[in-house]
Design a protein around this nucleic acid. Structure first.
Lengths: 182, 182
DNA sequence: CGCACACTGGACCAATCGGTCTAGTCCTGT
DNA sequence: ACAGGACTAGACCGATTGGTCCAGTGTGCG
């Protein structure tokens, strides 16, 4: 609730994002997070009064912000939609190789949690945010409204599905070939 | 190990498949499965000596077989690859509406589990099986080898990503529009 | 100085986790 | 009839789970 994010809080979010991404919401115990973040339990419940679910939402939001930056960085210097999309796919392939074989952080963190409605709507909100970001760039690059919406959704679908196949194969090649399908 | 699958074993597999699909491997306790399957714990460990992980693999295999049947049913009466793929997408959309908003059963069951190498390789094997099944139909319908491989992978990616977006939106429309992208 | 408050540290808790074990029941072949 | 294995039934176990609680600690402000 304070204006400045504190180191401990950040460490918790980062640790949670990393762990949830690789092992899923239920697959990670608070103990794991606390060890990874080098923080005591008291701190966790100070910063996130609702405990694990609060932490999950914060972690997912953080991961989403990273993705939005990645999208922006890919499309900002692009002349065409396809060029931007291709750059994004290649950046994601690189990220995949670097971070290893994890799931989409949002799906791992929010979809799988308790029936918690808040989590699911937050996940949907995040995904629509990604599509909206792509859509903005698509329109800026000259696509018609309906075409832009369709293209943005299509890119989202390709990336999600491609990431999953890359994960199963432990090989990022498929991600790089995604742009050919646009 | 017997030749005939017994009702109790089937009930366990079915219950596990359903629960893992909706809440993920770690999100489901054995107690949940046993209640759903109306079976005691002794039966579970009789049929699946390695417990939860055995059960997960059996559930994933069962789910995969269902998917293979769905693919076959979609392509068997089709004249073109695109027609078969379209039918498959529509069948999946119907399935989505019927079963509700779950994840891909394989991903939910096997990806998220313990570091267990067996589980992950089994998941990869299952996915390649789906792609191979589509690939067979693609070649039968006249596509060249390389084209067929690419098309089969592309369809897999579209379906996985589309299902995820459908889940977030709780709306299967996107699945029906997938075939336009082929 | 000393008060207030944000934050840390970790002991502690009930509940639940996956898994083990054994006694009992059922069915089948002889 | 009876032996023996397949299967059921559930009590029980130690470990771990998410969560609570409070005594301390540091720091900034009066």
């Amino acid at each position: 609730m304070t204006d400045i994010a504190r180191p401990t809080k950040d460490r918790l979010i980062l640790a949670a994002a990393t762990l949830f991404r690789t092992r899923g919401y239920h697959g990670v115990g608070l103990a794991d997070v606390l060890v990874e973040a080098k923080a005591p339990k008291g701190s966790l419940y100070h910063h996130f009064p609702n405990g694990k679910s609060d932490l999950a939402i914060a972690a997912a939001t953080w991961a989403s912000d990273e993705m939005l930056r990645l999208i922006a960085a890919s499309f900002d210097g692009a002349d065409t939609f396809k060029a931007g999309a291709t750059t994004l796919c290649y950046k994601l392939a690189k990220l995949f190789d670097k971070t290893g074989w994890d799931t989409c952080p949002i799906a791992a963190t929010l979809f799988e949690g308790p029936d918690n409605t808040e989590m699911r709507t937050h996940a949907a909100h995040i995904y629509e945010g990604w599509i909206a970001e792509v859509l903005d760039h698509a329109e800026r690059l000259g696509l018609s409204d309906t075409d832009a919406q369709s293209k943005a959704e299509h890119l989202f679908v390709l990336i999600q599905g491609g990431w999953m196949l890359a994960r199963a194969r432990r090989n990022s090649d498929i991600l790089r070939s995604l742009a050919d399908q646009l």
